[in-house]
Amino acid sequence: MNSLDTLIRMANQIATNLAHEPDPAAATAEHIHLFWDPRMKQMIRAHDGTGLCPVAQAAIARLAMAA
């Protein structure tokens, strides 16, 4: 598993576990914002979304907008 695969997996995990938050995508984006280092965030933002679940995709989109 390379680093990007790991990040995709991590993002999906976060999204799945925050699925019961009022706004899961926002909660996922916030979690990544708070706990990932800049390079990891940049890598996931630069990714085309393949392999990401819909909530994670939405979260990454929010991160990209905020960046």
Partner: peptide, 18 residues
């Protein structure tokens, strides 16, 4: 102001060469 790397992230970054 940005968070740093956790241990597993450090190891991933190391194998990535950065």
């Amino acid at each position: 102001p940005e968070p740093g790397l956790r241990i597993p992230n450090m190891l991933d970054a190391a194998t990535d060469g950065v």
